[in-house]
């Protein structure tokens, strides 16, 4: 690794704190997106099931 890059990752000695806080924030940002998409997929699946059941009960 070049010295400039090494210096960048070291963050004047605070690298552990800086990078772990950025990783934590990024992780939660992505987790929020994933959870929202999963919640929508669940709701769509349940709504489809309700529609199918309603259709079957109609003679």
């Amino acid at each position: 690794m070049s010295p400039a890059l090494e210096q960048f990752f070291a963050m004047s000695g605070y690298g552990t704190y800086v990078w772990s806080s950025f990783a934590l924030a990024l992780g939660i940002v992505l987790l929020n997106v994933w959870l929202a998409k999963r919640s929508l997929a669940d709701a769509e699946r349940d709504a489809r099931r309700r529609l199918d059941m309603a259709r079957e009960s109609v003679p």
């Binding site: 997106v33 929202a36 998409k37 919640s39 929508l40 669940d42 709701a43 769509e44 349940d46 709504a47 489809r48 309700r50 529609l51 309603a54």
Partner: peptide
């Protein structure tokens, strides 16, 4: 995205749900 899920869960009007799905 979460609002869509909330609206689907609350909605009992079948024709509206059929249309959006």
């Amino acid at each position: 995205v979460r609002l869509r899920a909330e609206l689907l869960r609350r909605e009992r009007n079948a024709s509206w749900v059929r249309e959006v799905l």
